[in-house]
Write a protein that binds this DNA or RNA. Structure first.
Length: 202
DNA sequence: ACTGTCAAGTGGAGAT
DNA sequence: ATCTCCACTTGACAGT
């Protein structure tokens, strides 16, 4: 276990904060939770504190005064965020050495750096799924349009088969139905007058 | 008041 | 057994 975490655990024991609620879908045993959020520091209600602290110290009075304390949320400074961001661009995961170095550099705990990277990866993944979803949506729409168009074209061809067959019929803006002069087969010409033979016609 | 963002907690799974 | 990652969740805070 990291020193930081040992420290935090020491701080947390007996505080009874951040209890665990069983999650839907996966029922888990309700462990007695005795952890204090890493980035939260006990403070008098309403007081603003600098949370970019060094190691957190724990005292018994902290614990006993817990009732009239609030939890403040850490917000990383712009410098910290941008340095983490730059580091993330280089590598989205960190080895313990890199983690420690970054933590030292930013005056954060290794656990905080680790959490930031975890959350950052989650955000990236979320964004990517959103992008993928949009792409698939577009692709699906294209396929649907193409399907409609082909169905329509098929309908027109079937109508042609039933009725009198003129030699050359404009099918769509891009395709023309005609009879091949050499083989006398019914063929479809695409935009470049490229011949597409139609199945089952002779 | 409501909503989105984000740091952090939790437990499970896999690797060592 | 321990570590690390992930999915899911919570809660503080900021913006509207």
């Amino acid at each position: 276990m990291e020193d930081d975490e040992a420290c935090i655990t020491g701080l947390c024991l007996g505080l009874g904060m951040g209890g665990h609620v069983p999650q839907k879908g996966k029922q888990k045993e309700n462990k007695p939770v005795a952890c204090l959020d890493l980035a939260f520091e006990l403070c008098p209600k309403g007081e603003t504190i600098n949370l970019n602290h060094d190691k957190v110290e724990s005292t018994d009075s902290d614990n006993s005064n817990n009732n009239n304390r609030c939890r403040k949320k850490l917000r990383l400074s712009k410098e910290q965020s941008s340095m983490l961001e730059n580091s993330f661009k280089l590598h989205s995961t960190l080895n313990p050495v890199q983690k420690q170095a970054l933590a030292d550099q930013l005056n954060l705990k290794t656990r905080q750096v680790e959490v930031w990277f975890q959350n950052r990866r989650a955000r990236t993944k979320l964004k990517q799924t959103e992008v993928d979803r949009e792409l698939l949506k577009k692709h699906c729409q294209n396929l649907s349009d193409e399907n409609k168009r082909l169905k329509k074209e098929l309908q027109e061809l079937r109508a042609l088969k039933v009725g009198p067959s003129p030699l050359c019929i404009q099918l769509t803006k891009t395709a023309t139905l005609t009879t091949c002069s050499s083989c006398e087969k019914l063929v479809k010409l695409n935009e470049g007058n490229k011949k597409i033979e139609l199945e089952g016609r002779n």
